[in-house]
Design a protein around this nucleic acid. Structure first.
Length: 304
DNA sequence: AAGACGAAAGTGGTTGA
DNA sequence: TCAACAACTTTCGTCTT
């Protein structure tokens, strides 16, 4: 029970207390229950300085972020001695050998399982918030299992591998999702995902084709509320540019954005560079650079 | 006032010695 | 491992509508 610094709305008395056992805030003067079912979100202890806080806090990092199977598992050591150091009998040795073997098997099975449980739920969460179809989740899960088998997870966060797997699967399926988007929903840094992705690509020898800028067109056009014919023209521009080797080495999003920008202007539904840049996740400057290249190389006569 | 333009400097990643 | 490099971003001043 703790006195709170507030007065009762009923009787105006200052005797408002908090009852931790019942989870209520009430007035001990008139008995009015002001708040029911209070949930205490904080720790149940109180600390008065940082030293105490250090000592009392016992949370630590969540288990899943720690190295799997470290700190929690038991090992049966390999020296066939008892605690006094004398050799133990052959019969006992054989028994210990069997125990070790089983112990190893069991721990490997559980750590693998634990890994998969965490990974698959994370995969589901990220894939869902990206609006990815069910079959893509399936192939992602499959790819993740392959990665586990190839022992590519060690040393990096499960989450970042999951993100990398999703990124790879999206590209393989031609469903464009940028690293930025995945980074946002997964909470993993872009470069971290990129690193895991490259590692994955090398380790599993999957070759992912370069992203075709045209894949981004419907998505960006949708966000900009541009019609189908604008999209078609944008794709045509991209095709022409591809033939002239204008897109190699260029970021696909930038190319798609510039093409859409030009196409929108050709249809008299001009969007500002700012608008296009925002939905494409690039800057206006990049759009201008691509736009300039396209205009020059394709001999476009666009009045803007 | 808003948008377009482009120069210059800075950033993060790749590549080749 | 380091430096050069390309693509892209940030920032900023100028021009156009």
């Amino acid at each position: 029970m703790v006195n709170l610094a507030m007065s009762c709305p009923e009787c105006e008395s200052k005797r408002v207390i908090r009852d931790y056992e019942k989870g209520e805030i009430l007035c001990s003067g008139c008995g009015l229950i002001i708040v029911e079912n209070v949930q205490d979100m904080g720790p149940e202890w109180r600390a008065f300085d940082s030293e105490q806080k250090e000592k009392k806090a016992r949370g630590g990092a969540p288990m899943k972020y720690m190295r799997p199977n470290k700190g929690l598992s038991t090992e049966i050591d390999q020296y066939n001695r008892d605690i006094r150091g004398t050799k133990i009998s052959a019969k006992k040795q054989a028994q210990f050998y069997r125990m070790r073997r089983w112990h190893k098997r069991v721990s490997i099975a559980t750590s693998l399982e634990r890994n998969l449980v965490i990974a698959l739920s994370e995969l589901d969460r990220v894939a869902s918030s990206l609006g990815l179809p069910e079959n893509l989740k399936e192939s992602s899960a499959l790819l993740y299992r392959k990665a586990v088998k190839a022992e590519l997870i060690r040393g990096r966060k499960i989450e970042s591998v999951v993100s990398a797997v999703i990124y790879a699967t999206c590209r393989l399926h031609g469903i464009p999702r940028t690293l930025d988007e995945i980074a946002r929903v997964s909470g993993i840094e872009k470069k971290e995902i990129g690193r895991s992705y490259r590692f994955l690509k090398a380790g599993l020898q999957i070759d992912v084709p370069l992203t075709d800028p045209a894949e981004y067109v419907p998505k960006f056009a949708g966000a900009l509320k541009l019609g189908g014919n604008v999209q078609e023209d944008a794709v045509k521009l991209i095709r022409k540019a591809t033939k002239q080797g204008l897109i190699s080495g260029r970021g696909p999003t930038g190319v798609a954005a510039a093409s859409l920008y030009i196409a929108s202007a050709m249809h008299g539904d001009t969007k500002t560079q700012r608008e296009v840049a925002d939905v494409a996740g690039v800057t206006e400057v990049t759009i201008r650079n691509r736009y300039r290249e396209l205009k020059r190389e394709l001999g476009l006569k666009v009045s803007l």
